[in-house]
Design a protein around this nucleic acid. Structure first.
Length: 300
DNA sequence: ACATCCCCTTAGCC
DNA sequence: AGGCTAAGGGGAT
């Protein structure tokens, strides 16, 4: 199946490499991912996307929706392009789009994403899927769907821990039970505003402000959410310190990789939202990817 | 009501 | 070889 992007800016590699989604692999120049109960095999050639979906074939709707191809990216980028720093990130990673993930999978993924790094997060989610998901064979490759809430809700802590998730096992177990009990209703959450969604997400064990913001941004259409992780903190301290008092920046930079307090998180978070506006989430992702890439570059 | 300190798995890196 | 780092959160004080 072919999808002509026409003049819609999109860069598949940036979108899948930037660290927002953990379930994609590049094999022989094709990206493979599991989205809902489907496998997507996809590559980009100039302004064309070439893809296969399985088991439901030619599922253009799934691809368009997942990659948010209907977002007016040129307009969004114009809204967040406030200074030379973000401008450089936008130019460097032009075409990066926020992905619309499944809320349930996104919740568990970002509970896994605390106090660890992207390769380990990918492992945790793969292990959970392999042990508790359903196997799908596609070509010469095997894939696993993300496990349903009712399955994880029944799983014992000892079995969960064999997936390498450590202390997160209890959070995942409780979050699964809440989802399975209908205490968390994602289709309702996608319809209420950012503040209200975040407040509800914070009731889930293992979900603090950072994880809640990630779920809002990557799965619940809250493009104004501005997650603040270590990389965003660094880029704010380096590039935007003039918007904070020197006492604050000094305190944060002296923390040496210890986590932010709630007050500190909220201060950076509300700066991001105010400064970049209603598409602050897009700005966050460009800054995050830019800072992470640049730091790994100067280390190697 | 707030802030501070400490613990929590895992793996790659130096 | 042991400490540090990584898309942080929770609980005790």
């Amino acid at each position: 199946m072919e999808l002509n992007l026409k003049n819609r800016p999109f860069n598949l590699n940036h979108t899948l490499n930037c660290g927002q989604a953990f379930r994609w692999d590049k094999i022989d120049n094709w990206w493979y991912g599991v989205v809902k109960e489907n496998i997507i095999k996809i590559k980009q050639i100039d302004n064309k996307l070439i893809f296969f979906t399985y088991p439901k074939e030619n599922n253009t709707k799934l691809v368009k929706n997942y990659f948010r191809l209907n977002d007016d990216l040129n307009y969004i980028v114009r809204q967040i392009n406030k200074d030379k720093y973000i401008n450089e990130a936008i130019r460097k990673f032009y075409g990066l789009r926020i992905i619309r993930q499944e809320p349930w999978e996104c919740l568990i993924s970002y509970i896994c994403a605390t106090n660890t790094n992207i390769p380990i997060i990918r492992n945790m989610i793969f292990n959970l899927s392999k042990k508790f998901g359903e196997k799908i064979k596609f070509g010469n490759h095997k894939f696993y769907t993300f496990p349903k809430a009712c399955i994880l809700a029944k799983a014992g802590l000892d079995i969960l821990k064999k997936c390498g998730i450590g202390y997160r096992a209890e959070y995942i177990s409780k979050a699964s039970k809440m989802t399975n009990n209908n205490e968390i209703q994602f289709n309702r959450l996608s319809k209420i505003n950012y503040q209200a969604v975040k407040k509800e997400l914070l009731q889930i064990p293992g979900v603090g402000p950072k994880v809640a913001d990630c779920i809002c941004l990557f799965s619940l259409d809250k493009l104004d959410a501005f997650p603040v992780d270590i990389w965003v903190t660094r880029s704010i301290l380096e590039l935007y310190h003039k918007y904070f008092d020197s006492l604050f920046t000094k305190k944060i930079s002296g923390k040496k990789y210890k986590s932010l307090t709630l007050a500190e998180y909220n201060k950076i978070n509300s700066f991001g939202k105010k400064y970049f506006g209603k598409y602050a989430g897009y700005a966050q992702e460009y800054l995050f990817y830019y800072k992470r890439m640049y730091n790994s570059f100067i280390r190697s």
